[in-house]
Design a protein around this nucleic acid. Sequence first.
DNA 1: ATCTTACCCATAAAATCCCGTAAAATCCCC
DNA 2: GGGGATTTTACGGGATTTTATGGGTAAGAT
Lengths: 167, 167
Amino acid sequence: MSGAYAYSGSAISAIDDKGRLSVPAFLRKNLVESSDGRTLCLGTHEKWDCLVGFGLSRKADMLTEIDKQWEAAIARGESFDKDAAGARKFSSLQDLSFDASGRFILPPQLREIGQLESHVLFHGIGTTFCLWNPQTLLDTTDDVPVDRRLVEHHLKEAGEKSGGKSK
Amino acid sequence: MSGAYAYSGSAISAIDDKGRLSVPAFLRKNLVESSDGRTLCLGTHEKWDCLVGFGLSRKADMLTEIDKQWEAAIARGESFDKDAAGARKFSSLQDLSFDASGRFILPPQLREIGQLESHVLFHGIGTTFCLWNPQTLLDTTDDVPVDRRLVEHHLKEAGEKSGGKSK
DNA sequence: ATCTTACCCATAAAATCCCGTAAAATCCCC
DNA sequence: GGGGATTTTACGGGATTTTATGGGTAAGAT
C-alpha cells in the first residue's frame, strides 16, 4: 500500500492575487515522497463540497483498483464499465506541480467547484487530504466529521492576518 | 500495466478553420512517452457519443484485455467472439501524429461521429481520455459520470474566449 | 491546378521560475 | 530554561518560458 503513510493535521493557507497558494509544510514532505517529485494531485470530492489532494502514487493505486474490479467482474461473467469508473475518479483530477517554496496555481475550475475564495483549510483524512473553504466547512459540519473548534481557530487566525478583511 | 500512468484532468481546446486542434499540454507528455514519438491514437467510443484517445502502447494492452475476456469466457464454458471484440475496439482507431506544438488534424469522419464542432473537451478517465463536444456531454450526463460543473465551467470559458459566438 | 497536410513564424495569455521579505518556527549556547 | 541567532515558511512581485491558436507556405497527392 505504497508507503502506508497517513495524512493528518490541519492548516490554513491564503490564495494570492495570481491564484497561487502554498501547500502547508507538513503535507509537503509526503507529497514529494509519494510523487517522486513535487507533484500534487487535486480533484473534486465525490460527496463533500471540497477538493481532495494526494500524491501521484495514489493515482496509480486507483488505477490498479479499477483493474482488479474489472478482472473480478469478468471472472464472474459480469460486466464492469471501466470507463465509467475511470471517469468518476479521474476526470476532475489534475496533476499540479508546486515549486520549491511549495506553491502551486489553483486551476480556476477547481477553485470554483471547491468554492475556494481567499483562504483554504487543508486537513488530512488518512489516505488523502481535503481543501475546504473554512466557512463552507463550518456551514456543513453536520455530515462532515471535523472538529468545529479547529476550523474556528484557523478561521480566526486567518482573519487576523488579513487585518479583518476576511473572505 | 504499461508504466501505470493514468490520464486525468480536463481541458477545452478549439478547432480552427483548418480542422486542427491541439492536445492539451497535460496529456501530451504521456502520449509522447507511451508512443515513443508524437502519436495519438484516436477512435470512436463504444458506448458514449464521444471519441477516445491514448498513446500507441495502449493498443497492445487492449489486445491482452480481449485475451483475458476470452479466457474468462472459456473458463466458464461460454463462447467469446474475439474478432467481434477486436472489430469493436480497433476498426475506428486511427494513428495520428501531432506536431511540435501539439496540434493535429482531426479526420472529418471522426469529427462527424464525435459530433465535434468548434470546441472539444478533453478529459482523462484513467487508461484513456475522451473527446467530447461539451454541449453533447452536458446533454447526456445522466449516464456519463462526469462532474457537470466541470463541463459548465469549460463551456463558459470557451464562450468568453470566442467572444460569445459559441456554437 | 487544386486540395490536403506538414512545417514555420507570430502573438497574447497563462504557467513557471526566481528573487525578496517578514513572520514564525527551530536551534543553540550560556 | 531564557533569549538571541539561524532556518524555514508564507507570500508579494517581476521576469522568463510554455501554451493555445491564427495565419502563411512549400511539398505531396489527386
